[in-house]
Every structure is written in C-alpha cells, then in structure tokens.
C-alpha cells in the first residue's frame, strides 16, 4: 500500500512537471486551428471543431511570411556557417595552445547582454549604410554563434587525445594537416552540437532584428512581433505564425535531443 502511494505520488509529480509545457504548446496549436469566433469565445473552446487551416493560409497570404522565413534562413544560415568556419579552428587553437585568457574572453562575451553590442554596431552600420540589410544581421548574429561554437569546440578538442596528432606529426604532417585530417574528424560530433545550438539561438534571436532589421530584412521573430502592432490583433493567425516560427527549432530539439543535451552540459548554454 505504502509503495503504491509512493508510486502514485511519483507519477503525479511527473504529470505536474510536464503539464505546463504541454498546456502552452497545445494551446498554441489549438488557437492556430480555430476560427476567430471560437478563439474569442468564453469559456474557451479547447478542441477545434472543425479544425481549420485558414489561419495558416492567411499567414502566408497576408504577411509576407515567405520573405521573412527566407530572411531568417539567410541570417541564421550565414551566421552559423561563418561561425563554424571561424569558430572550429579557434576552438582547436585555444584547446591546443592552452589560451585560457582567450577562453575567458569568450565566456565574458557570452555573459554580456546582447543589447550592449547593439548600440556601437548600430552606429557602425549607420555610418556604413548597412542598417536594414541582411549583411548587417549576419555580422551581428556572429556575436551569438561564435562564442557558442568556440566554447563547445574547446571542450571537444580537449578530449581528442594529443597522441594521435603527435604521431601524425612524427610521420611528417604539418600542424594544419594534423588538425585537418586527425583532430577535425574526431571532433565531428562537437561540430554537429555546436552547429545545432548556434542555429537554435540565432534563429530565436529577436532584439538584433528589431533594431537592425529593415522592413524587407526582418527575421521571423521580429516580423511576427511587428504583425502584432500593425494589424488588428487576431489570435488565430498570430498563433499560427508563432507556431511556424518556433517549429523548426522544436523539430531540431526532438530530432537531436541527445546531442543538444550533451552540448548544453558541455557549456554551450544560451546566448543573451
């Protein structure tokens, strides 16, 4: 009996833990599948009957959603690729060169509020005429992607045994070749993890696009936020848009759960 009560209590606590997440996501889905009448009904209608895809159609038809999706893909894609290109060798250099001070700089960069980069960069982009361009956003998103990638790669390269590279160098490989053909393939899981986390945090970023994005270069989060202020608030399309914005990130989370957990415990953590 006592064991039964304990077990029941345990499952109750699992239920309590998971339900806030379930509630919010299900409500999001529910709002996005209901017509406007049901969305503003009180008491609320929980199950869409009949479910309608009209909100999703509206999102694409009325809000230039396609353009903003493409902007997000360009900005995040660009910032992640450049971040990997620059960050992976840097992680190697720091790990092998034991450049701890540089590592601390990366950590401080990760702790600094994103807004504090924005004022100088905003002025800089104004002077150079880059405000409102995709290029400016890609450059700014490097503030997010590089620290995550470098930090994670340091951890991975520190775990690649030095002996293998030493052996290759005895066989006549240069430092570059030892990196390229020995260390890099072994650190591939780290590159995947770093890339995924950089993708998530860059995709989710809001503030950079609010300040630097123009009407045509906005990324999805700020575009959806703006649709809130410029139109009559209609919950259905807004919920549909919100769901579409966060869907890629949630899918990646589900697919790459294991890598993400590994990466976060390796110190990737979140950006600001």
């Amino acid at each position: 009996m006592n064991r039964f009560v304990k077990k029941l209590g345990f499952y109750a606590s699992v239920f309590v833990l998971v339900s806030p997440a379930v509630l919010v996501f299900l409500w999001m889905i529910s709002l996005s599948l209901k017509n406007e009448l049901d969305n503003t009904a009180f008491p609320p209608v929980f199950i869409p009957n009949p479910p309608t895809l009209k909100n999703y159609v509206d999102v694409f038809a009325q809000n230039n959603f396609g353009l903003y999706l493409w902007n997000s893909i360009l900005v995040t894609g660009g910032a992640v690729l450049l971040g990997l290109l620059v960050g992976v060798p840097a992680g190697y250099g720091i790990a092998r060169g034991k450049a701890h001070k540089f590592a601390i700089l990366i950590l401080v960069a990760r702790m600094t509020p994103a807004l504090s980069y924005l004022i100088p960069l905003f002025l800089l982009f104004q002077i150079t005429g880059l405000v409102g361009t995709i290029t400016a956003l890609v450059i700014t998103h490097l503030v997010i992607t590089i620290p995550i990638i470098v930090w994670i790669m340091i951890g991975y390269f520190e775990n690649v045994p030095m002996e293998l590279e030493d052996a290759s160098r005895i066989d006549g490989a240069t430092t570059w070749q030892a990196f390229r053909y020995v260390a890099l393939p072994l650190a591939k899981p780290g590159i995947v993890v770093g890339g995924i986390l950089a993708f998530i945090f860059s995709w989710n970023n809001f503030i950079f696009s609010v300040v630097l994005g123009g009407k045509a270069s906005r990324t999805l989060p700020s575009a959806v936020y703006n649709s809130l202020t410029f139109e009559q608030i209609s919950w259905g399309p807004l919920a549909a848009a919100a769901l579409l914005v966060t869907l890629p990130v949630l899918l990646v989370t589900v697919i790459a759960q294991r890598q993400i957990v590994a990466g976060l415990s390796a110190g990737g953590l979140k950006d600001g």
Partner: peptide
C-alpha cells in the same frame, strides 16, 4: 528551445 517571442505571444 522554443522561440521566446513566439511563446510570449501565446
């Protein structure tokens, strides 16, 4: 992992 802005709207 969810996009904070999207969730904030909900």
């Amino acid at each position: 992992m969810a996009t904070p802005v999207a969730v904030a709207l909900v």
